[in-house]
Amino acid sequence: MCLAVPGQVVAIVDGDQQLATVDLSGVRRSVSLACLVTPDRPIEQWVGRWVVVHAGFALEELDVAAATETLTWIDRLTTPA
């Protein structure tokens, strides 16, 4: 129900329309940041950040630290085989 792919905001396309270019591992598209931009987090602050894109919209910011935590959890957990 929700195919979404991580990508990095690389440039602002249209501040008023809240559109920015997102690079999805080599595939670039103009994406709406309407679900992310707020008065205290204007569009300019989003360049360089990682987001997850669904149907042309950035659904939410991707927390890079949390991603690393998820990836390394198995090492902290592994019980002797």
Binding site: V5, L24, S25, G26, V27, R29, V53
Partner: peptide, 11 residues
């Protein structure tokens, strides 16, 4: 890689 990425984006 770019082909894999495009396929991932489009399902």
């Amino acid at each position: 890689p770019p082909v894999a990425a495009a396929c991932e984006v489009l399902g």
